[in-house]
Simulated assay, not measured.
Amino acid sequence: MLSARDLRVAFPGRRGAAEARAVDGVDLDLRRGEIVALVGESGCGKSTLARTLLGLVRPTSGTVGFAGKPLEYGGRALKAYRRRAQLVLQDPSGSLNPRHTVYDAVAEGLRIHRYGGDERAAVTGALARAGLRPPERFLLRYPHELSGGQRQRVVIAGALVLEPELLVADEPVASLDASVRGEILALLLRLRAELGLAALVVTHDLGLAWNIADRVAVMYLGRIVETGSVETVLTAPQHPYTRALLSVLPEAPGTPVILSGEAPDPSRVPSGCRFHVRCPVLAEGGAGHRGVAAACRTQDLPVLPATPLAHTACHWVAAGRTGGPG
């Protein structure tokens, strides 16, 4: 349904500084009815990638395809695409106009796309599918009169009202209480089962990915460094970055791996493996033991292919598979 090939997005630097490579070579596929979790720390390029896939950001190079056709960036083409692919934002309080009732918030998309059917029926149907029942109780309420979970359901209803084929959910439960997160995740799974929706879920939480996703793509500094089925990636992680992210989950065995510092500035992407400046395997001598320490520091890794198979962009992992450097 949705594909990216060698996707790159760079933003101009300030005052003559080098450009920031927010997305720096990504291949990604999303099939119909599939949920893919895009996971990584803040600032690794996840949200920029998601917005580029929706046509909200135009790529510097590479292509986005939808339903087998390349995405076109003319106004009419983008409007038609956004009816089929909808964004669900992290903060429902920020994405809902406080002066609009729930009815107006959900009906906004119908009015933009000049819906010709029964508007009230479409709005109440979307609210019911989003779990706000009976929907008539919510039509004249304002956002401040709702709980956080109810506001997020209104946002989801606003996306569903256009009957899209794809949802891109950017940290959909990050601002919600733990007791409500499970309800929203269960809702997304039910929508996939009932409507056949595909979803790209952007998150920093690998635990969320485990509960909702079919596949996981782990992103670091503009590039996907590990991808595969959720069971493969989260039960047998290969990349040192994925291992570190998993190690800090409450249920993870062993000692948490605390990464030093923050991810580098995307305008100063390190040479070689972009993770090598923080990599505990390199720092503790594991890469040297396999004879790839120099490669980690100097040799860039290829963009991972967009296939359902598990892939890892790591010199140390590759050397372990082949018995030596490679």
Rank of each mutant, 00 (worst) to 15 (best):
L2C: 04
L2K: 00
S3L: 13
R5W: 02
D6F: 11
L7I: 14
F11W: 14
G13T: 02
A18R: 03
A20P: 13
V26R: 05
D27V: 12
L28W: 10
L30I: 13
R31A: 12
R32D: 12
V36T: 03
V36N: 04
L38K: 04
E41S: 10
E41Q: 08
E41F: 01
G45A: 00
S47P: 07
R51F: 11
T52R: 13
T52M: 06
L56W: 13
V57P: 04
R58N: 15
S61M: 13
S61Y: 10
A67S: 14
E72V: 06
G75F: 11
A77N: 04
A77Y: 01
L78P: 08
K79R: 14
K79Y: 15
K79M: 14
K79L: 12
A80I: 10
A85M: 08
N97I: 01
P98V: 11
H100D: 13
T101F: 00
V102W: 11
V106W: 11
E108Y: 03
R111S: 09
R114H: 13
G116Q: 03
E119A: 10
E119H: 08
A122P: 00
G131H: 13
E136V: 07
Y142R: 07
S147C: 12
S147V: 14
Q150P: 03
L160S: 06
P164G: 02
V168T: 02
V173Y: 05
A178I: 12
S179V: 01
V180Y: 09
G182M: 09
R190V: 15
L191T: 07
R192M: 04
A193M: 00
L197M: 08
A199I: 04
V202Y: 02
H204C: 12
H204T: 06
D205Q: 09
G207V: 05
L208G: 14
D214N: 00
L221Q: 03
L221H: 03
I224M: 01
V230G: 06
E231S: 15
L234N: 08
H239V: 02
H239E: 03
H239Q: 07
T242V: 01
R243C: 07
L245T: 00
S247E: 03
V248R: 05
L249N: 00
G254H: 10
S260W: 15
D265K: 14
G272R: 09
R278A: 04
R278F: 06
C279H: 12
P280C: 05
A283R: 14
G285D: 00
G288T: 14
G291T: 07
V292W: 04
V292D: 03
A294L: 11
A295Q: 13
Q299H: 14
L301P: 02
V303S: 01
T307K: 06
C314I: 02
G320C: 12
T322Q: 15
G323T: 06
